[in-house]
Design a protein around this nucleic acid. Structure first.
Lengths: 218, 218, 218, 218
DNA sequence: TATGAATGAGTCTTCATTCAT
DNA sequence: TATGAATGAAGACTCATTCAT
């Protein structure tokens, strides 16, 4: 436009805010949703925490549910394409790839507030079918697909025993889901019930699975 | 009403019902809570399904939350003393005992509506701290204790390798929790995400664990 | 029930209120809707004017729209069956019957708050399609049908000239609608625009029509 | 932008548009108000349809209400001076003049979107007293005055019987108002209730009136 | 002039719980 | 005990209007 007139112009403050808003709101929503639950978080609280008025929230997200969907996408959904690429380029053994997957998930979801989103969705799925659908499409399906590909890779290379990968994935999913649910429900309320070392638990689970699955072990 | 009938006849239906009331309410609550969720179930629905009026429900249970607690106790809490006894009297190997535990849990909780209660509690724990406390006391603690004893039994007899039982139990708990959560959240909403054969999955998990844990396997 | 025990019992106060409530609410709604319009009347105002709380209103009418429908039925809809009977039994000439119809309408609707309802429905029809449907079914259709029967009666007896009754009715409807609209819009706001003598106007209109319609007149 | 072009060329499109803005906004408002109602039309929609931003609308019209007033003036108010002139110069009989008036109204209002404005004003008059006042001043008063003059002309010439013209005008106004209200409320919602041939209806009404009014008829 | 981001007042409806009967 | 009428707090979302740019 007028880029020729001012050499190092920056967007007007108003403009910069406009671009920053969605992120600020998403961040606020993530924190509050995880802390208080989706239903228990008032839209206005989210707006306040992001430093804007109620109306502004609805300027960027047509509804509270859409805000939730965006939070899912921002914190989890967008990881799958990246992971998919990583997997494609991975050079090592399938065991290592599997370990890498679980590790990545732990680092980027399990150990972060995003884990609260997973817990939330599983908790509220019944009450918000549209969110459940969205989650199924954007998270569950890609997630399963990714893990299935990893298992299939191992089977194809002869590293893993032949198996029904579409069922076997649950063996990987289960400990992850468990960890997130536990952390954000009983773990959050009764410190005594908290898990001591989730990462070690995860390690153990994966080792167990690999030993059970690798050809050499049998 | 029954004033015309003989005084020493069997208690009138009304009176017999009177004693059955709490149980009927509990049954109705279980069904509805599992089907629609805790928040989405109206107290009046519970009363209606039990054939009494809204007021009567509050005569037996001071609040909806208390009703929930009673449902937990009735459907899950009361199982632990029984299981504890069973365990005490079990004669076989610790592997078999472990399998038996998981089997019992599956039969009496996992495959029944009670599994929905577990899902519900994990979902609502944050919103109802009192319920979380209650659950921790009446379910989690006894459950962990029971499984810890089983593992310790195996270790003591030399059947299992030495281990930190208090962490190892999570390896058993995880697939159970996962199964219940999955079934009642994504599984209930997206048929495509449903698990095909939960029992087989469970079997597999236990086998995996036992192979990884038993001395002979190493 | 126990009617044999107490000779002249009356329903408990609570009970009597229950039966009186709908009427009280309907009355309050009629007044407020006519005075302020449907959209501009808050549900709570209606409840307050009826001396109950907001919640109670929704105990008797599932929604504000349903309340409106009930107001229509109560104040206008229920008149048609009565009028239909009257017409059936009318013995005089069709001219007299027509005059009687218009007279009845004026006495029971035009000159009463019910006229405000008609104005309201015509005003809000676009914004509340469901109400428009209801009104069409419960008021317009029966009203037209009634007037058509009257005209047909006159034609059949040779008192009126042959005509397309289904279009001719509008000649009768028009001045009534006009009177109600005028009274509740410009008439209500600008006293100077108010009609002086609506009844005389109506008389004049009917006379004009009858002159035009009666066979002898031609 | 146009700084590169010759200074004395025809006004740039932008500038020409600038002067056309109010008219475009008025046109857009007319269409939308009639289609969706006043309250249901968002200011932004009007602006959008006129190809400008929300802010610009408020630059030309201080409020939505003022926009409405301008729409009234533009589509109805400005007709009366013209009609008044026409009447002044009319040479034929008063019957013909009356027919001409009704005809003109039908052509320029009744059959055009302007009829929707009349309906709207009558609907919203209570909620917007200022609009009601404005309408009374700019439309009702001049309209009545015009018709009164026509009737008085007929009476003065002996063509019509003596009458209270200030009341008699309603006999002319009624069918017009009715037609507009009907078309834009029930007629718009329930096709079955729509009038078949409004023009014929109008004709009939006028004939009826003239028969009743002309001296010869008595 | 023109823009469009931001504001915040306003309202229907649900439902756990109470209490007069 | 049992009933069910009554209560009232709580929350998402819209949109006319403003004002910094």
């Amino acid at each position: 436009m007028s880029s020729l007139s001012s050499p190092n112009e920056t967007p007007a403050r108003r403009e910069r805010r406009k671009e920053a808003r969605p992120g600020e709101l998403l961040q606020a929503a993530l924190t509050l949703f995880v802390e208080k639950g989706f239903a228990a978080t008032r839209s206005e609280e989210v707006a306040q925490r992001a430093g804007v008025s109620k109306g502004t929230l609805f300027l960027y997200f047509p509804s509270k549910e859409d805000l939730f969907k965006a939070v899912i996408q921002e914190n989890i959904g967008k990881l799958f394409p990246l992971w998919s690429d990583e997997m494609q380029q991975f050079q090592g053994s399938s065991s290592d790839l599997l370990r890498h997957c679980v590790q990545s998930w732990w680092t980027q979801v399990g150990a972060t507030p995003a884990s609260g989103i997973v817990k939330l969705v599983m908790s509220e799925a019944q009450n918000f079918p549209e969110i459940a659908d969205y989650y199924q499409r954007e998270v569950i399906a890609p997630g399963r697909e990714l893990l299935c590909r990893v298992l299939a890779r191992g089977v194809a290379s002869g590293e893993f025993r032949p198996m029904d990968v579409s069922q076997a994935v649950y063996t990987l999913i289960a400990p992850m889901i468990f960890l997130m649910m536990w952390k954000h429900s009983v773990g959050a309320c009764a410190p005594s019930a908290q898990m001591k070392d989730p990462e070690e638990f995860l390690q153990l689970q994966v080792d167990l699975l690999l030993h059970g699955m690798t050809s050499k072990a049998s």
